[in-house]
């Protein structure tokens, strides 16, 4: 009898609708208005790579040890260096990083002994060309320059 009444008065369906109704309140909005509203990115987020420079002297921190290139599963980092005749130290000449093949696993930044290579919070990596996804040393030091939207 009870079951019949529940069936006739659609109790099970109204119960579900009440849940939907409870969630109607405007404070329950979870949509982010990207790009107007920037998402909050975690500190440890693994995004665009950056080659850190010493902020005072402008010199690169990279010691051209090639450990990141060896750690990379996709072999997308190419480091080339030159031996300085006077100081007998290796100096970085070029550094290329192919972001189109990168899967942002973070193994390169784990391998870096001097914290020169770092995966940053930047995540807007789109490019109009395939070549644009291959970042050279200048791009890695300056960081990506995403388009600014006007709206």
């Amino acid at each position: 009898m009870r079951k019949l009444l529940r069936t006739i008065f659609l109790v099970d369906l109204i119960q579900g609708l009440w849940v939907t109704f409870r969630n109607q309140h405007p404070k329950n909005i979870y949509t982010e208005q990207y790009p107007a509203q920037r998402p909050r990115i975690a500190e440890r987020f693994r995004g665009a790579p950056r080659l850190n420079i010493n902020p005072e002297t402008g010199e690169t921190l990279c010691i051209a040890c090639d450990l990141c290139a060896l750690a990379c599963p996709e072999n997308l980092i190419v480091v080339s260096s030159e031996r300085n005749k006077q100081t007998r130290r290796k100096e970085l000449t070029t550094f290329t990083y192919d972001t189109s093949r990168c899967m942002f696993c973070g193994l390169c930044e784990d391998a870096c002994p001097v914290d020169a290579l770092e995966l940053t919070q930047d995540f807007e990596l789109a490019s109009y060309t395939r070549e644009g996804a291959i970042w050279d040393r200048q791009m890695l030091e300056e960081g990506p320059k995403p388009t600014w939207y006007r709206y």
Binding site: Y30, A42, R44, R46, C105, G106
Partner: peptide, 22 residues
Amino acid sequence: MREREEILNIFEAYCGARLTTH
């Protein structure tokens, strides 16, 4: 999806990625 987002936020804060976490 709303609740899953909370979990993914924890993953992101812990290891830096949301889906393919490593």
